[in-house]
Design a binder for these strands. Structure first.
Lengths: 225, 225
DNA sequence: GCCCCGGCTGAACGCCTGTTTAGGGTATTG
DNA sequence: CAATACCCTAAACAGGCGTTCAGCCGGGGC
C-alpha cells in the first residue's frame, strides 16, 4: 500500500500512509503527534505538508476512495457483488482499508457516505440482472429494496464490530469474516424461504399505503414536538 | 423525565438529567463544563457528586437502563416486539432516551450492549411464539436467526442516522420514524416473499457446512495475518 | 451569641490538543 | 566559494480538557 505510485518514500507519502493506517487502527481522534511518530517525522511537518489535521483527514479519504475504486475496477465482478469489504479484506495490501471504511461508517464521514452509495449503485445493477435472469424476485420498489439490503448488511456488520471490537485492531478483518460466518446461514435462510408464513402483514401494509388514514390522527400521538 | 422520583430538584438529580440529555444530543465527548452549564452548576460540583466524568457516564447508563426496563414493563407486549425504540420515541418523557441509546450503540458502550441483548432475548421469545402459532417459519438455528434480525434492524437504523444525521439533534426521533417508513415495505416484502427464487445457494451452503473443505486450503488465501 | 458542617464555587493545575514560529542543515545554483 | 531554496525540527503558544483545592456561605445544634 503506497501513495500515488508504489515506492514513493517521500516524507509526504510516508505521512499519508501512516495516517491512513493510524486512523484505521485508532479512529479519527488519533493525534497528529501519534501519526508523526508513526511516520518518523515531526508533528510540524505533518501540518507543513497538509495544512491542518482536517485536511490530512480529507487527503486520507481521497486516497482511500481512489484505492477502493482501483480495487473495484480490478477485482470486482457479478460474483462478488455486495461483498466489496470481503474482497478488500482478502487483498493483503488493501486489508487496512477495511478498518478505515468501518471507521468512516461509524463517524459518518465522506468515505462512509461514498462507500454506501457505491454499494447501493452496484447492488442495484446486480439485482436487476438477477431479476432478469429469474434468480431474484422482483420488488415493488427496487431502489428501496436495494437500499434496505445494503443498509442492513453494512449496518449489522458495523454494529457487530462496534459491540465486539477485536482486542488487536489488526484483527478487524478476522472479525469481519467471523461475523459473516455467523450470520450467513440465517441470511441465506431468510433470502430463500422468507420469515413469515402469511401474507397478511404485507397485504395490510399495501392496503394501508394505498388508502392511508387521516394524518392528523397520527401526529397528535406521535411524540414529535 | 426525572431522576429516581419525579420532582427531585436536588443539584445531583439536575446534573444527572442534564448529562443524559447532553450525552444524547452531543455524544459522550460532551464536556463536563457543558453539562455543568446545562444544569446551572459549577463543573466542580459535577465531579464532587459523581467523582469523575467516567462515573457520571456510568451513572447515566444505569439511569437509562432503569428507565428502559420500566418502560418495557409498562408498555411492551407481543404487538410491539422489536419496536422498542419506536415505543420509546412515542413516549414524550422518554424521547431523549432514543438518542442516548443510539449514541451508546455507536460508541459500543454498556447501554448499547445491554440494549442489543435485551432485544435479542425479547425477539427470541416472540419469534418462538410466532413459530408455534404457525405465523413464522422455523429456522435451522433460531438463536442465530434472531441475532441476525436484531443486528440488521438496529444496525441499519444506526447506519442510517449516522449517514444522515438530523440538523437538530432534537429530531432524532423523527429521523428514526422516517427511516422506518422508508424501509418498512422492502423489509415486509423480504420477510413475506424472500429474495431468491432458487434454493440452490442455501442448499449449497448446507452441503458445504456438513462437509467442509480442508481448512488450511482456505487460510493460506484468506488474508489473515 | 457562637460554631460547625455540608453544599457549593472560583481559580488554578497539569495534561493533551492542533498549530505557529524561528531557525538549523543540506543540496542546488549563480 | 557564497548564496539561495527547500525540507525539516525543537520549542513554544493558545486553548480545551478533567480534576483539585482552598475557601465562601447559609442553616442546625450548643
Amino acid at each position: 500500500m503506497r501513495s500515488a505510485e508504489a515506492g514513493d518514500t517521500s516524507a509526504r507519502a510516508r505521512i499519508l500512509d501512516a495516517a491512513v493506517l493510524r486512523f484505521a487502527r485508532s479512529g479519527f481522534r488519533a493525534s497528529v503527534r501519534t501519526i508523526a511518530a508513526d511516520a518518523d517525522v515531526s508533528p510540524a511537518l505533518v501540518i507543513h505538508h497538509f495544512g491542518s489535521k482536517d485536511k490530512l483527514h480529507a487527503a486520507c479519504d481521497e486516497q482511500v476512495l481512489a484505492w477502493i475504486a482501483e480495487s473495484k475496477r480490478r477485482n470486482m465482478g457479478p460474483a462478488t457483488s455486495g461483498r466489496l469489504l470481503e474482497v478488500l479484506a482478502q487483498t493483503d495490501e488493501l486489508a487496512p482499508l477495511v478498518g478505515y471504511v468501518l471507521r468512516s461508517l461509524q463517524a459518518g464521514g465522506p468515505v462512509g457516505k461514498a462507500f454506501v452509495e457505491h454499494m447501493i449503485d452496484d447492488a442495484e445493477k446486480y439485482t436487476a440482472e438477477a431479476v432478469e435472469q429469474g434468480m431474484a424476485r422482483p420488488s415493488r420498489d427496487e431502489r428501496a429494496r436495494v437500499r434496505y439490503l445494503v443498509y442492513s448488511s453494512l449496518g449489522s456488520l458495523l454494529l457487530s464490530v462496534t459491540m465486539n471490537p477485536p482486542k488487536d485492531p489488526e484483527d478487524v478483518n478476522a472479525a469481519v469474516r467471523a461475523f459473516m460466518d455467523d450470520l450467513y446461514l440465517p441470511m441465506l435462510e431468510l433470502f430463500t424461504e422468507g420469515f413469515l408464513t402469511t401474507r397478511r402483514m404485507l397485504d395490510d401494509y399495501l392496503l394501508y399505503v394505498s388508502d392511508p388514514p387521516r394524518e392528523d390522527d397520527d401526529l397528535t400521538t406521535s411524540g414529535i414536538r
